Simulated scan of single mutants.
Amino acid sequence: MLVRIVKMSFQPEKVDEFLSNFEANKTKIRAFEGCHFLELYRDQNNSNIFFTYSYWDSEDDLNNYRHSDLFKGVWAKTKCLFNAKPEAWSVDKLASLK
C-alpha cells in the first residue's frame, strides 16, 4: 500500500474556494479505483495550509488517478489558488497503532 501526503498552501482569500472544490470532489476521489482512504487536514497555526492523506493500492493506481480527467479537473481549479508550490510525498506505512 502506498500512502500519499500532499501539502498545499493557499492564498488566504482563496481557502473557501479550495474547500468548496474539495467538498464537491472528495467522494469521487475516494471512489477512484485503487484509493482506499482520503483525509483532509488543516494546519492549526496557519489556516491556509492543508494536507491530504490518501492510501492507494499501488503507484500505478495513484498514477492512473493523476492522469485521469477527474484529477485534471480538480487540479485545474486548485493550482491557481496556491501561494506556494505544493509538496507531495509517496511513503510506505511502517507502523499503525489504534
Rank of each mutant, 00 (worst) to 15 (best):
L94G: 12
K85D: 05
A95H: 11
A95D: 12
F50D: 11
E39M: 05
W89C: 13
K98H: 07
N63Q: 09
L62A: 08
Q11E: 09
K77F: 00
N64R: 10
K26G: 01
L2V: 15
S96Q: 05
V15G: 13
V15S: 15
N83Y: 06
L97H: 15
E39R: 09
L2E: 12
E23T: 03
S90I: 07
H36E: 10
N64A: 14
F71W: 15
Y41R: 11
A24W: 04
P86A: 06
P86Y: 08
F32I: 02
F71K: 09
L70D: 12
N63K: 06
K77L: 05
Y65Q: 02
K79H: 05
F22V: 03
M1Q: 09
S9P: 10
R66L: 11
V91R: 12
N63C: 06
R42G: 09
E33Y: 00
F71Q: 09
A31H: 06
F51P: 09
D69Y: 00
H36P: 00
N63S: 07
Y55P: 04
D57Y: 11
H36T: 10
E39D: 09
G34F: 01
V91W: 11
L62Y: 15
H36I: 02
E59G: 06
E33H: 06
I49K: 09
F37R: 08
L62E: 12
Y65K: 03
Y55Q: 13
L19C: 02
K28G: 02
Y55G: 13
L81E: 08
P12D: 13
N45C: 05
N48F: 01
L38K: 00
S20N: 06
P12M: 08
H36Q: 12
N21M: 07
K98F: 10
N25A: 04
L81R: 12
L97Q: 15
D61N: 06
C80S: 15
T52F: 02
K77I: 00
H67I: 02
E23P: 03
S96V: 02
S9L: 12
N48A: 02
L97Y: 15
R42P: 10
K77N: 05
N45T: 07
K72D: 02
A88Q: 14
V74H: 01
K85L: 06
W75L: 03
L70G: 12
S47F: 04
Y53I: 14
T78C: 08
N45F: 07
K7T: 07
S47E: 07
A95Q: 13
C35T: 14
A95N: 14
N46M: 14
L40D: 04
S58E: 07
T27A: 01
S9V: 14
D43T: 04
F82N: 04
A84L: 13
A76H: 10
Y41E: 10
V74G: 03
V91E: 15
S58P: 01
L38G: 01
A88N: 14
N21W: 05
W89P: 11
W56C: 03
G34M: 04
L40W: 05
M1Y: 02
Y53D: 08
D16A: 01
D16F: 01
T27E: 05
K93M: 13
S20Q: 05
K98R: 04
N63D: 07
K72A: 07
L38I: 01
Q11K: 12
S47A: 08
K7L: 06
F71E: 08
K93T: 14
F51R: 10
V3I: 11
